[in-house]
Write a protein that binds this DNA or RNA. Structure first.
Lengths: 350, 350
DNA sequence: CTGTTAGCGCCTTCAG
DNA sequence: CTGAAGGCGCTAACAG
């Protein structure tokens, strides 16, 4: 393999100058025969323009980035699809980065991404550290945050009221006749974990639910099915008496993955869902619709949030001076079989 | 906002030369006081080095790319995690691109990605067109393909024998006493679709299964749950007589997503899984383990394939001249509740 | 240890 | 319509 051909080689082979070659390939003014010669030369050499050099010269890369903690979570996949739908056609390409749970990694990623590799960034961080905020603000390219930030931070933001979402879940369970409601949360050092906990505590008080013996709250190690199963196993065994009777009749999980883990745990313990234990998830991901039993879930409008985020980013890209916006998407409840004991489960598959 | 500070501004403010500023920031030889001055200047200006310029000069970006048709498919998530595990620590960062089903998009992506934005690429394409192969071969950076390529193509490759995988599934069902086995495939213009079909036809012949009335094969529109449900609905209704009796007692699905869709369809029709219909998936994704009922699935070693792909890529990066390798990962069967009528379903959650 | 200089590959005025 | 020349921001020789 010889070295990659550059525009110089193409120009030489075509017998024209570098400038003419560039113009010919980019559709600028050039005589038809020059275009033909240059095209032929480029083809025979297998010439591909260097994106890096192009970006440096042009000042943009036509790439946008979407950064999340865990692409394995379907909620981010839905967001990504929505973002991509908006972005496509505007000439940008989207690339996804999975940052992992380490906040330092996220900061690191933002730093490098936001300086050259992408023209804009949508980020949905689980853990918002001060350092991350600093980095987000000084990023060289526009950043849109999907999630909650301190009010003082001036950044385009799309958020949801997940505390209210938990409230919807609890209210639905209370209406369905459940009173001994447990809460399966994710890590408390995350923004979603914090706000969901607040939502649960408030709802618990509002409905005057009596605290059971032992805490009805359990914190999973992360927002995954495996962690949800383990935490649910702990929570459920803690609330079982010697005869195996369960002191809990419902569970609100902080997201669908945890909810699925919880259902799995319940089934392992020989419990029936929803008869013995009703389960509500959050995010209303595709998973909720096709799981068995169908999972009642609080939609946090992930697709809508993604769409808004992409639109905000595009808008800022075309007008860097526009005032920052903060969009709030309201949660809605989607009822399925996991909380319905009557015989008509809503076999919806979307 | 003023223009972004460059290294020149830092150097000026620190009262040193451009070169010294560069050296000071990159930890090259420099006097302690120079380092201090430059650091201070950089900090006060909020200087961030331009990644594009750096890449152009250095000739590499320290970024690797993983391109798949649909990041929504958990099999790719597992591959990605494995790749990331290998790549991390070698100094590269991984970015993911979801190309969508359009082969032209994929070609386009390879073209741009493989010229500047990344130093290497792992790609797992569903549809391998001649044009894609051409593009893969002429890519300016090393490419590793996860999937099957024509034998003549000289590229590092990691593949699996999915035809044999289908064979394992059919054999298991036959051993479990099933004889009227249907096949739920993905699109036939995809590499996996083609090879799985071959596997099914061969297995069908090998076990001397009698063809039922009407085709026992059905092709879903794509490899998703929704498409699987729809196709399964078609297939199952076609094999039901007027009294509702099912002429099929088992289904092999081309991946876990289709299998889940099929189970959903079966339940909608009032069938019991596995009593009325046993279902086998492929890929043995996390989904298979926590679905209800647990999904028997043929593992195609997605994590292992990802690991191999990453290692091949790293190896080629450090030695571009090494001979190309072709690694084959063998499928294995993982039995769970969806094919077991006896009362001990293997509630495994991994 | 430091400053000067020459590019990385490309696009784009500016003259011709 | 074409060619020559000047950078985009950075790093790596090369002298001093």
């Amino acid at each position: 393999m010889s070295a990659r051909p550059t525009l110089i080689h193409v120009a030489e082979l075509a017998g024209v100058s570098l400038a003419s070659a560039s113009r010919a390939l980019n559709g600028m003014v050039a005589s038809p025969e020059t275009v033909a010669k240059v095209r032929a030369a480029a083809l025979s050499l297998g010439y591909i323009p260097d994106a890096t050099a192009r970006s440096l010269k042009l000042g943009h890369s036509l790439q946008l980035a979407f950064a999340v903690d865990d692409v394995g979570n379907p909620v981010y996949v839905e967001m990504m699809r929505a973002i991509e739908t908006v972005v496509r056609g505007s000439g940008y390409r989207l690339q996804v980065s999975s940052t992992g749970t380490d906040p330092a990694e996220t900061v690191d990623l933002v730093r490098s991404l936001a300086r050259g590799y992408a023209d804009g960034l949508v980020i949905s961080p689980l853990r918002v550290t001060d350092e991350l905020i600093v980095e987000l603000k000084r990023a060289a390219v526009p950043v849109v945050v999907v999630g909650t930030l301190p009010d003082t931070v001036q950044l385009d933001t799309v958020q949801t009221d997940s505390a209210r979402g938990v409230g919807l879940a609890v209210a639905h369970l209370v209406e369905s006749g459940r009173r001994r409601i447990g809460f399966l949360n994710g890590p408390l050092d995350t923004t979603p974990g914090m706000s969901r906990r607040r939502g649960f505590v408030e709802a618990y008080a509002a409905h005057q639910l009596a605290p059971a013996a032992g805490s009805v709250q359990e914190v999973a190690a992360d927002f995954t099915v495996a962690a949800g199963r383990r935490a649910a196993l702990d929570l459920l065994s803690r609330h079982r008496d010697a005869r195996g009777a369960l002191a809990l009749d419902a569970l609100v999980a902080a997201n669908d993955l945890l909810a699925v883990g919880a259902i799995h745990a319940a089934l392992e313990l020989g419990l029936q869902v929803p008869e013995d234990l009703a389960v509500v998830g959050m995010d209303d991901t595709e998973l909720a619709g096709f799981f068995n039993p169908g999972l009642t879930s609080v939609s946090l409008g992930s697709a809508e949030r993604g769409r808004h985020a992409a639109e905000l980013l595009l808008a800022r890209l075309s007008d860097p001076a526009r005032p920052t916006r903060r969009i709030v998407v309201q949660p809605t409840l989607v009822v399925r079989a996991s909380t319905q004991t009557d015989p008509t489960p809503e076999g919806t598959v979307r």
